[in-house]
Design a protein around this nucleic acid. Sequence first.
DNA 1: CGCATATAGGTGTAGCTACACGCATATGCT
DNA 2: AGCATATGCGTGTAGCTACACCTATATGCG
Lengths: 149, 149
Amino acid sequence: MSTGSSVPMFGCTCARLRKLTRRVTRIYDAHLAAQAIKVTQYSLLANAARGERSVSEFAAELEMDRSTLSRNLAPLAAQGWVSISIGADPRSRRIGVTAAGRRKLRAALPLWRKAQCEVEALLGKAGVGELHSGIERALAALPNPSGKR
Amino acid sequence: MSTGSSVPMFGCTCARLRKLTRRVTRIYDAHLAAQAIKVTQYSLLANAARGERSVSEFAAELEMDRSTLSRNLAPLAAQGWVSISIGADPRSRRIGVTAAGRRKLRAALPLWRKAQCEVEALLGKAGVGELHSGIERALAALPNPSGKR
DNA sequence: CGCATATAGGTGTAGCTACACGCATATGCT
DNA sequence: AGCATATGCGTGTAGCTACACCTATATGCG
């Protein structure tokens, strides 16, 4: 298998990753459903709780398109969980968490923990460790798209 | 008061996974854009090329909701890349690849390979190996949702 | 000051994802 | 045969994701 193109045996890295992400997302969402929140929303909320930031800063941290973040924030704002206020520069927005958002976060935390524990139990300590280190390594090595657009 | 942030939210397996998936998907899509196809569509097409199957069988293999697959197939059918014919059981559909679909697959293959190689180069042999084994291990250990619904 | 350019953010469009539910056909039971 | 149930698939609804492009404001330079 020397010449060029390693691989087909492992399949497409992206497709495998997407498949795993679908499975894991379903597990988390199933647990969080009892609090009527999705894991994507929970992550956003938890991240927002770390301090007020502009949309751009927030999007850069999450490595998410600004427009994606903008849209993902909309349902959270509609639920009254995040606040979107105008910043010093009137073009900018400050994204923050409301009291209701913090309450929701507190209510959802045990469900999130249960999901996390279920995954850990299924994968085993070693499996989780290997997966995490693979993910972290990849996140460190792959180009962060910031600066591009 | 215990507002001391309780739990380190940075270990959310799902969020990390989703972040990585966003990055990797962007890399693949950037390469495949020259053939006006997305990595999700490419994967679907490549999978369909392995033989005609019903929507349910296909969805079970990909561990994707049937309705999701149905919708993802629509743009491919619109492009004339996949065929959707009525099976022996008139309720069922046979999903197959057209000649145009195979041509598209052939044209996109080198681009897919370049994306795959870029990821491998960035991660290094070891990084890719670790990531892949972590993914495969997780896919083997996590419950396959089939049977549920 | 006035204009060119850069920056912050949203819209339009398009595709991916899943759950609840509905429709049509098949199958099993009496 | 006739009806109850199961199966195969699509629709409705809702949310996630990103690129291209637009608007509005800020900033820099003459």
